[in-house]
């Protein structure tokens, strides 16, 4: 190839970018992952046209399961209009031409980074997680050769010692996100860096959960209705974060909130991290205590150029 011959156009790539052989290879890894819940299946991760660490694992999983009739939702930090979610959604609009949505209930596939939507997912939905470090034992033991052995032997003492030391030192377990879970009573798994607030949602979830780590070349899965237990001790049971206030915009309680700094005088408000959930509640007439605040109005008004519209196909 010379530079005079133009390299492939976007239009000349296969549906959803990856070639069919690669998709088949990834689907085999996914099937294996479903058969052995929580086990990290090595796969020949490809270089993608976005950087490693920016969702290449999730993108490869989504590309491999995506069909022409699917409706895709992409969120990052719970929101559809964070920059990387916009970029990934744009990638699939361009390479697969599938319908995309902001609405959780409308999507058949949801790719996410760092959050699980507040609304319960259904059996006919699949949630795809972007995973930076799939190995829950990595920060206790940096060697892959060792951690694979530990999983094979179900040798999780190190993790329990770590949690115990947390309690001995701080009086509680000092892990707030990527909180380790035990899947189907066998494999300790990293639920990706979602806040531990979301851990209860992955237990017996109706939807299929797929986890893709591109740089580390691992895929794992949790089939629907699988038991997933957050690690804890009888006398120190697992707890999720609690917020004292409801969402400033929609008044929702028992949801995960982002803290937004309003000025340089300590003014702040808490708003739903799940932007679609918040918007739906506001449309249904729910108002939070800060909804009338002029600072909050700019937030509620949306920040994307197509915030309230359905994105174009």
């Amino acid at each position: 190839m010379t530079a005079q011959q133009k390299p492939l156009d976007e239009g000349e790539y296969n549906f959803a970018y990856l070639d069919e052989q690669t998709k088949r290879m990834i689907r085999r890894a996914i099937l294996k992952g479903i058969a052995v819940p929580g086990y990290q299946v090595p796969f020949a991760s490809r270089e993608m046209p976005m950087p490693y660490g920016w969702g290449t694992g999730g993108v490869q999983v989504t590309a491999s399961i995506l069909g022409a009739d699917d409706c895709l939702k992409v969120i990052d930090q719970g929101s559809d209009d964070t920059t990387n979610a916009v970029a990934i959604r744009g990638f699939f609009e361009k390479t697969a031409g599938v319908e995309t949505t902001f609405e959780t209930s409308k999507a058949s596939i949801i790719q996410t980074r760092h959050r699980i939507p507040e609304k319960d997912l259904r059996e006919d939905q699949i949630i795809v997680f972007q995973v930076p470090i799939p190995e829950p034992l990595r920060f206790l033991e940096p060697r892959e050769t060792e951690t694979r052995k530990m999983h094979a032997l179900e040798e999780y003492g190190l993790m329990h010692v770590k949690l115990y030391e947390d309690i001995a030192k701080n009086g509680h377990i000092a892990t707030t996100y990527a909180y380790p879970v035990l899947v189907n009573n066998r494999y300790v798994m990293d639920p990706s860096p979602t806040p531990k607030f979301d851990n209860p949602k992955i237990d017996k979830m109706a939807a299929l959960q797929l986890y893709g780590a591109g740089r580390e070349k691992r895929i794992y899965a949790i089939p629907p209705y699988t038991e997933v237990k957050s690690l804890d001790f009888e006398d120190y049971p697992f707890e999720v974060q609690k917020f004292d206030k409801p969402c400033g915009l929609c008044g929702a309680e028992n949801v995960y909130l982002d803290e937004v700094i309003l000025d340089d005088k300590g003014g702040r408000m808490f708003v739903c991290s799940d932007s679609d959930y918040c918007e739906e509640r506001r449309e249904a007439g729910h108002l939070g205590p800060m909804a009338a605040d002029p600072n909050a109005m700019t937030l509620a008004g949306g920040t994307s150029d197509q915030h309230s519209e359905e994105p174009a196909r």
Binding site: T56, T82, Y177, D258, E259
Partner: peptide
Amino acid sequence: NIQATGFVEHLKLPHYVDFQAELELVRRM
């Protein structure tokens, strides 16, 4: 270096959900 630069530079992506979780923890501690 393709893997390394991707993962180092991904720290530019928003992390405010995890940061929020850590804020709560550090306040408590």
